[in-house]
């Protein structure tokens, strides 16, 4: 499997929203909610975006309160947290501002990401801390979580109004699946098998990547794959596992 990052519709939506955020009217509306079911590529995208742009990334944990959030954020920023609570908050603002300023000079996008935000979204103290930092700096604040994050945020009108941009990760389209297979699979794949992978995977990237592994293993053993591995070639072969039942999904004999 090729080690490349493939740009899908979800990636384009995320980057588009981020660009849109730069040109927002209300400067305080700088929060963005990214949500969607597991396995749609949120973490892969966040890993790439933050690595490429030197963004700040923090993964929220169950049981955090406002103090722990600031403490861990400071650690993430490479600073030993001061003893005084007020000083800790000040340092977060200072360091984030320095990083944002450096990004502005280098003309690259910058933001800070709170991953698994739904784990702390029920805690008013944490959410208000995030809002406070976001208001103080007015830099892109990206809250990432699963499908329910947006619904939880609705409890806080003051936060919801600052996050008008929502990127919901949707299951991959057939075009996305084709791009993923073309980009990552080392053997050629025929359109009928691409279509089957799309249908069987339900558009979940995780399952598509699993299918690519199976197709590659099969394709490398064939002497001649012609214009690509077809459904007929792989008839009866396991291609992925169903995420709900855990059972193997085999390619049907006739499709």
């Amino acid at each position: 499997m090729r080690d490349v990052f493939v740009e899908t519709e979800n990636v384009r939506k995320f980057l588009g929203s981020l660009a849109d955020l730069e040109h927002r009217g209300a400067k305080e509306a700088c929060m963005m909610v990214v949500d969607g079911k597991p396995g749609l590529g949120k973490t892969s995208l966040m890993a790439r975006w933050q690595a490429q742009n030197d963004a700040v990334y923090i993964r929220a944990e169950v049981g955090w309160d406002g103090g722990m959030f600031i403490h861990n954020l400071l650690r993430e920023l490479g600073e030993e947290p001061p003893r005084a609570k007020a000083k800790r908050y000040e340092r977060v603002i200072e360091i984030l501002f320095e990083k944002w300023h450096a990004a502005q000079i280098a003309r690259r996008p910058f933001g800070w990401i709170v991953d698994e935000c739904d784990l702390v979204a029920g805690k008013r103290e944490v959410m208000e801390t995030i809002r406070g930092i976001s208001d103080a700096l007015q830099i892109p604040t990206i809250l990432v979580g699963m499908g329910t994050l947006r619904d939880i945020i609705k409890r806080y009108p003051q936060i919801e109004s600052r996050a008008p941009r929502r990127v919901r990760f949707e299951p991959a389209t057939q075009e996305d699946v084709r791009a993923l297979i073309e980009g990552r699979c080392e053997v050629a794949v025929a359109p009928d098998l691409v279509e089957f992978v799309h249908r069987a995977s339900g558009g979940f990237n995780r399952e598509v990547v699993e299918a690519i592994g199976y197709i590659e293993r099969f394709g490398h053993r064939l002497d001649d794959i012609g214009e690509g591995v077809t459904v007929a070639d792989m008839a009866g072969q396991v291609i992925m596992h169903n995420r709900n039942t855990g059972s193997a999904v085999a390619v049907p004999g006739a499709y």
Binding site: D3, F5, T43, Q50, A51
Partner: peptide, 24 residues
């Protein structure tokens, strides 16, 4: 530097996953 950042997000990873996130 980018690879280290990607490793911190991914936690458990293969070399390929890190390359996909960090290469330019």
């Amino acid at each position: 530097v980018r690879a280290w950042k990607a490793m911190r997000v991914l936690g458990i990873f293969t070399l390929g996953e890190v390359i996909a996130a960090a290469e330019r």
